[in-house]
């Protein structure tokens, strides 16, 4: 109970300073290690989200409808959730610096399932790609969260110097996934490490 209160409290504070800013079509730094070219149809959530400066959340129509998560580096022992790092009681997978690409993809998929609190997730078309000029991975997924809205997603990333650089996107299958997919593909293709 106390934990929940604290969580509500921290979000209350957070909500007070959360706002959105436009993203110009120029290179955007995600922490020190990653940069992507912005897409004006997306908006960046500002204010401190969790404790990692190198974690950004973008949306075009609202987070319920499309959410893009950009990680400028997840290091050894860290998880996909900046909040969970502080209080990891959710058995989130922990990133290992020596992961290969398949293990990194596995880490991402398992983390999304765990964060979504659902068994209904399926990854498809897991393949190697060049991400930011490095050997990387990409996969698509379909997930049903507790609101029972079926969502599709894309994840792409690479491991460099023991850190995972990652972009993942999810949106309801109906209308919203396809609507922003081209912009998301451009963002992923523009990644530089």
């Amino acid at each position: 109970m106390k934990a929940i209160r604290a969580a509500i409290l921290s979000l209350g504070l957070l909500a007070g300073c959360t706002a959105y800013e436009a993203i110009p079509g120029q290179p955007q730094a995600i922490g020190n290690g990653l940069s992507v070219v912005g897409e004006p149809e997306f908006n960046r959530r500002t204010g401190a989200i969790g404790r990692r400066a190198e974690f950004q959340q973008w949306t075009a129509d609202g987070f319920e409808l499309n959410a893009l998560h950009l990680y400028g580096g997840i290091g050894e022992g860290e998880t996909l959730s900046p909040v969970a790092d502080r209080d990891n009681r959710r058995e989130l997978p922990v990133f290992r610096a020596n992961s290969n690409l398949a293990e990194a993809a596995e880490f991402v998929q398992a983390s999304i399932a765990k964060l979504g609190g659902t068994a209904l997730i399926e990854a498809r078309d897991i393949r190697p790609i060049a991400f930011g000029g490095r050997d990387g991975f990409r996969f698509e997924f379909r997930i049903t969260l507790k609101d029972e809205v079926e969502r599709d997603g894309i994840a792409a990333g690479a491991v460099a110097s023991g850190r995972l650089y990652l972009i993942f996107y999810h949106a309801p299958r109906q209308h919203y996934f396809e609507r922003r997919k081209p912009a998301v593909e451009r963002i992923i293709a523009s990644a530089r490490l």
């Binding site: 690409l101 398949a102 993809a105 990854a123 078309d125 897991i126 393949r127 190697p128 050997d135 991975f137």
Partner: peptide, 10 residues
């Protein structure tokens, strides 16, 4: 397999 291409790369 959905991850055939990735595994092949190993």
């Amino acid at each position: 397999a959905q991850d055939r291409l990735l595994i092949q790369s190993f």
